[in-house]
């Protein structure tokens, strides 16, 4: 197994919010609680779960774009979770992010060339004379012709913009990229192009990905390991085979069962396990195991005590009282 590039320990992110017409009621959104896992060098680790489960918050907290409430993010032996913006700056080169909405991640007033060239100049990665050649190479890396450097974002399609966002992230020569729902807003045929591009780039530059998504079919396709989150907590984490072929947590099982398959005959006969009810509010998460309100096998213990996050063997982690 490769060594860990990032080690996340008991990471927490709580957002204070004010409710009521006059903001008189203080409350806390428990967006992420007690997440511990390693991100291994060169792997694609995916985080899946439904909206509000905290998967994007995890990505933002790891990159210190949202300062973690508690916990540690160890990179090169240092806890970057406590770094201020100035100390983060050199590290940001190594740790990059690509966002979901291709229409708003690029500054509409800057050309593609300016957008891609900006981080290169800022981090002084090459001279001004070398810059155009470098931009062209980066655009070529993401499958765009060099003349796109003069274009503005609004002239590009969603897929093309997402390629630019990737080129921009690559400009810093990063080791690690968080793909925050990076393909979710794209059409099916374009999604496949970008997934292939991500895999190509990973091979070429030895990148490590934290792939945040809700589309399990895509996750199954590109991940080495998968983490499943529910309402701010990790429910299960393991290799792709462990999680998809042998899911342990009842939530993982329900999630798998809810994913439709492109197979009409199979779909008609398939027995789905449909979860009752809705995801509770992260403002007031249930006590004990947060899934117990919807869990088909919840026990008395699940209502009162938080299940321990433990390795069931061979790196297959789960947090559930019912798993032996």
């Amino acid at each position: 197994m490769s060594p860990a590039l990032l080690r996340i320990e008991n990471l927490k992110k709580h957002f204070p919010v004010r409710l009521g017409a006059f903001g008189e009621k203080a409350a806390t959104v428990y967006a992420l609680d007690d997440a511990s896992f390693d991100i291994l060098e060169g792997e694609t680790l995916s985080l899946v779960g439904e909206s509000g489960c905290g998967k994007s918050t995890t990505g933002f907290a790891i990159l210190n774009l949202h300062r973690p409430t508690a916990g540690r993010v160890i990179y090169k032996g240092e806890n970057i979770a406590v770094f201020d913006e100035a100390r983060m700056r050199p590290i940001r080169r190594d740790l990059q992010i690509v966002f979901q909405d291709p229409y708003s991640t690029l500054n509409p007033r800057m050309t593609i060339g300016e957008a891609v060239g900006e981080p290169i100049l800022f981090h002084k990665l090459c001279s001004k004379a070398e810059l155009p050649g470098r931009i062209e190479r980066l655009l070529a890396d993401v499958g765009l012709p060099g003349r796109f450097a003069q274009r503005y974002p609004h002239e590009l399609s969603g897929g093309q913009r997402q390629r630019v966002a990737l080129a921009r992230a690559l400009a810093c020569e990063p080791k690690f990229i968080v793909c925050d729902e990076a393909i979710s807003a794209l059409d099916v045929s374009i999604q496949a192009q970008i997934i292939n591009l991500l895999l190509d780039l990973q091979e070429k530059y030895g990148l490590t990905y934290l792939f945040i998504a809700h589309d399990l079919a895509v996750v199954r396709h590109i991940s080495d390991r998968v983490g499943v989150m529910y309402l701010g907590r990790l429910a299960e984490l393991g290799t792709r085979e462990q999680v998809f072929a042998d899911p342990l947590h009842p939530y993982t099982k329900a999630l798998m069962s809810a994913v439709p398959e492109a197979d009409p005959a199979g779909e008609r006969t398939r027995q789905r396990q449909i979860l009752e009810g809705d995801v509770p509010s992260p403002l007031d998460p249930p006590s004990g195991c947060r899934f117990h309100t919807r869990c088909p096998i919840a026990m008395e213990k699940c209502r009162s005590s938080v299940p321990e996050w433990r390795d069931t063997g061979a790196g297959h982690f789960v947090a559930c009282h019912a798993v032996p």
Partner: peptide, 22 residues
Amino acid sequence: SRPYITAARALGLTNRIILTRY
């Protein structure tokens, strides 16, 4: 609150650059 501001922060750009260019 636009994503391109977060994207600029993620690149390590300073507040001054973010204000003037974004």
